[in-house]
Every structure is written in structure tokens, then in C-alpha cells.
Design a protein around this nucleic acid. Sequence first.
DNA 1: CGTCCACAGGAATGACGGGCGG
DNA 2: CCGCCCGTCATTCCTGTGGACG
Length: 396
Amino acid sequence: MDEIDKLFEKVLESNIFKNREALRPDHVPDYLPHRESQIMKLASIIAPAIKGARPSNVFMYGKPGTGKTAVAKYVLRRLKDKVKDSVITAYINCREADTNYRVLADLCAAVNVYVPFTGLSTAEVLRRFINGLESEGCLMIAVLDEIDALVKKSGDAILYHLTRINERLVKARLSIIGITNDLRLMEYLDPRVKSSLSEEEVVFPPYTYEELKDILQSRAEEAFNPGVLEDGVIPLCAAIAAREHGDARKALDLLRIAGEIAERNGDAKVTEHHVRLAQRELERDHVVDVIKTLPLHARLILLGLYVLSKDGKSTVTTGELYGKYRELCSKIGADPLTQRRISDLIGELELLGIIDAKVISRGRYGRTRRITLAISNKSLKEGLLQSNIALRGFIE
DNA sequence: CGTCCACAGGAATGACGGGCGG
DNA sequence: CCGCCCGTCATTCCTGTGGACG
């Protein structure tokens, strides 16, 4: 029996999981502990939809992993159960659909209108969406998740149109549920958009350590077979996640990965040691995935940052990094982009959470960004190594 | 207390690739 | 198939800015 067969046997024989889907981030359970008040508030706002009336637009905010998406999906699911097909619902993640065009294209898909992924003007796509919705002739509730990513990248023009779309509709109606991680988003918005989008607001505070334990406990009962979790596992997952602004998604990921590691090893129980391993795997996987899909020049910037940090410079300025980037470009024979463009790419890397880039002023020595790595050197190295062979020579 | 650095970030513009209508 | 229009990404040019220096 070779290594692969052994692994398969172990997983096959393992009795760790009862239903691992219950721990996935997109799983919406039937019970959301410590979010009862947010659920009731959203439900009461949405309630008019049952009689076909248009609910107010809602704005929901809170840090990542505070249950915003889960609450929105849960309440919409309950609504759907009640009204069946007389209300159309759409869920759009604006981090994935991060241009005005793609958001509109997704909305079109929800009303069964096909649009090509490029080639049309946004105005045309908007027109098709309106026609599509009008011919459905009913209420639509659209969830725009991570709306901050959309606004930062593409502005609020589309939100302006969507909030005023009811003026152009005769039979149909549109309500918007906006979700954001970033409270400062409101400052960037056009006041007209701001007021119509936040007719109602629902706030999601971070989970406390105790609340995270409850959440993990209730999900663990769904996901694991009885008795496979050692006593310290849930508290440890909760403690790690509580340190990161009470992020329940992180806590659930930790628990799931820890279980999968135990499963692969053929262990009968999930222990705190598995959680520690999971913590490392989680960061590395995330970083590697993100870096692999980055365009070449963004990776060159990261490589530059890596090389500089090897030389003992843990924080660098835009200028220093740009110099190193140009040097690397000439070594691999790539045409360097201008500093203006690199400035934007640095902004994008920051949005992705790979680097921290804070704008600082150093008096007569100018304004710049103070750039530091937000991930471990090891993870970055791993990500760069896996992403492109041409870069390998520069990582020892 | 004004200057002035070293960029940030907005605006205009162009190359490119893709869809559409004829 | 063609000419046209569009979104995306990049460049060029520009104005704005916060605080240490003199």
C-alpha cells in the first residue's frame, strides 16, 4: 500500500466529522447565537416584503466575521420560505464583483438576463437590468456584501443609480441591503447615496470570547461526532479568534482545519496541538492563494519587500520599494511600471491585507507610505516560490 | 513661521481586447 | 467581416499636503 492509499484509508476510517459542511464559512446554520437582536431588527425591516411592499434600504456594518453575511442570508432564506417566488433575492459579493459593470452583470443574472462580461456600456447593462426586473414585475431584494471594496475601487456611481432605480420602475421594486466591514465607508459616499442607502441601519459588534465559545459549541455539535473534541480545543479556537477582533469566521476555520488535520493523521481526537497546526496552515494557505493570483508586477513589489526585509529593513517607504522594484525588473528583463501605477498596486496589496501601508508625513523629508509586511516572512516566501519560476532565483 | 520634500492621489489620455449591430 | 463603442489597465501631468528644518 503506498502513501496515498494509506492517507485515503485513514480519512475513510476516521470518525472525526459528522458533517463538516457545518463549519464552512458560507454555511448558514438554523441557529445564530448572540445575533438574535440583529436578526429581529433585519426581519422587521424586511417584513413589508411579505405583502409585496418595498422595504427600506438597509445598511449593515461590523468587523469581519461578526455574522453580517450569515444574518442577511438567514433572514432572506426565511423570507423566501414564506413568500416563495414573489420576491427575487440576489446576493452579490462586491469583493469578487468589484466593478460597477460586474455588479450590474450579476444583478442581471438574478433576473435571468444574459449580458456579456465586457463590451457593453454600464449604462446599457443598467438599462437591461431595469427591463429585466420590470418584466419580472415583482420586488427584488439585493444584498451587496463587502460594499466597501466596490466603493474604494470603482466609486459610488452605481449605488447612486441603484438607490434611485425605483423612480424608473413601474411594476417592480428594488430594495438594497448593503454590508460593509469598514465604518469609514460612509465618509466617502455621496450624501444622497448615504441617506437613501441607510434608511435603516443594523450594527454588528465583535463577538466576545464567551460568545465565540457558544458559537463554536453549537456548530461543533452539528459538525463533529460526539466526544472527538478534547476539552481545550474550543476555548483555544475562541481565544485565538477573540484576539483578532472577535472574528467568528476565523474561529470556525481553525476548528475545521484542526479537525481535518486530525483526520489526515488518523488521530481519534482533535487536540489543542491540532489547532496550533491549523493556525499556521490557515495563514500560509490564505497568503499563497492570494499571491498566486496576483499580477506579475504586484508580485515583484512583494519580492522587493522580501529582499529588503532580508537586508534588515522591516519598514520601507514607497520610494525605497520602488527603487528595489525597478532593480528587480531590470534583472528579469521586465519593463517597469511607473511610480504612479505602483502606488495604486501598493494600495491594492494593502486592501488584500498582505502589507500594511500607512500614509505618514516626515516633515521636509516628504509624505510617503510606511510599508510593512502584514504576514510572516515564511508565508510570503512560500507564496512567491509557488507563484512564478522566473522569480525563484532571487529567493535563497 | 514659511519653506520644501517626497510622495499621495485626481484627471486626462491612450493602447488593447472584446461585444454589438449591420 | 467591419467599424464603433466600451471597460480595463497603464502612462503622463498635475495639484495637494503635513510637519521637520532653517
